[in-house]
């Protein structure tokens, strides 16, 4: 997904529409637009609209009553808690990994970059299973931990670990190509002029990578709050205790409490919309920054 930032930071142009040689006949254009919009409406817009329509089907009263449920509120709180731990940890990792990979040359760099992407291609269910095998009752460390009175599986730490795993690459993936493209001349100049390493990072590197960093955090945050498969395996689904909001949606849905399930789901859909808005703003800001840089 590193290409995503780059896409929107390049300036969009109308050059294809000016020349007859790069333009299709009007009927072809119309047909392609119609086809694309129909596909878009069917597969993207309709599910989004459905969430809100179903959530409000029985009126606002039922909607707010469902959200005020103690179990729903504790699920919201737990989701926020897990995210508040997982995202900063992956943020620090992403910066460290990008600093090592983008600013230095070393053997095995390509392999390291590939391994960082690994969680993206592992099924969330398998990710959850990994932690059950490590910390579960029959796992490697499970019996030893149990002897010391520590439980991880079916508790909040397991939810945090599973969430960190599935959101692991987000920040690093955005920062590595960005920092590689920026090179290291500016940092070297700061060091030569006597700035300390931290100062150099804080005043030279960070302003340059700011938008890429925020972009990665937004994506990481959205995935952390919405993760389902991995946390489902390690959570144990204890209501009010280890139920994150997406898991709570599942429980309500399986109890045929559709209005409440869609009410909880609508919060997550709002989060998704907020994510897309913030993402667009960050892309716009990043483009501004890049244009300003090109004019210098």
């Amino acid at each position: 997904m590193s290409a995503v930032v780059a896409t929107h930071w390049t300036v969009h142009s109308r050059r294809f529409e000016t020349s007859a040689a790069t333009r299709e006949p009007a009927w072809v254009r119309g047909m392609l637009i119609a086809l694309a919009l129909a596909f878009f409406a069917l597969f993207l817009l309709l599910p989004l609209v459905t969430v809100f329509a179903e959530a409000l089907r029985k009126g606002w009263g039922v909607y707010f009553a469902a959200l005020a449920e103690p179990d729903t509120r504790s699920a919201i709180f737990l989701t926020l808690l897990v995210t508040a731990i997982a995202v900063p940890l992956n943020l620090v990792f992403g910066v460290a990994a990008a600093w090592a990979i983008a600013k230095f040359d070393f053997r095995g760099k390509q392999l390291l970059t590939t391994l960082i992407d690994l969680p993206f291609s592992v099924s969330p269910v398998v990710a959850g299973l990994c932690f059950v095998l490590l910390f579960g009752a029959q796992g490697w460390f499970g019996p030893w931990l149990a002897d010391h009175g520590v439980r991880i599986i079916f508790t909040v730490p397991a939810l945090v670990l599973a969430t960190i795993f599935v959101t692991f690459p987000f920040v690093a993936r955005e920062l590595i190509p960005l920092m590689e493209a920026q090179g290291q001349e500016e940092e070297e100049a700061a060091i030569v002029l006597g700035a300390s390493g931290w100062k150099t990072f804080w005043y030279v590197t960070l302003p340059n990578i700011k938008w890429g960093l925020i972009y990665g955090v937004i994506l990481c945050n959205a995935r952390a709050m919405g993760e389902f498969g991995a946390v489902s395996v390690v959570s144990g689904h204890i209501r009010g205790r280890t139920n994150t909001l997406p898991l709570h949606v599942e429980i309500l849905y399986n109890e045929y409490n559709f209005a409440a399930a869609f009410a909880a789901a609508s919060l997550l859909a709002l989060l998704a919309l907020l994510t897309l808005v913030l993402k667009s703003l960050v892309e716009w800001q990043g483009r501004q920054q890049m244009n300003a840089g090109q004019q210098l």
Binding site: M1, V4, F40, L44, P47, L48, T50, V51, E54, L219, A222, R223, M225, G226, E227, F228, G229, P246, L247, V249, E250, Y253, A261, F262, A265, L268, A269, L271, A272, L273, T275, L276, K279
Partner: peptide, 15 residues
């Protein structure tokens, strides 16, 4: 277009 990246999978599933 990025909605599937941002929308939690369980929400997409029930919708």
């Amino acid at each position: 277009v990025d909605l599937p990246f941002a929308l939690p999978t369980a929400v997409a599933g029930i919708a």
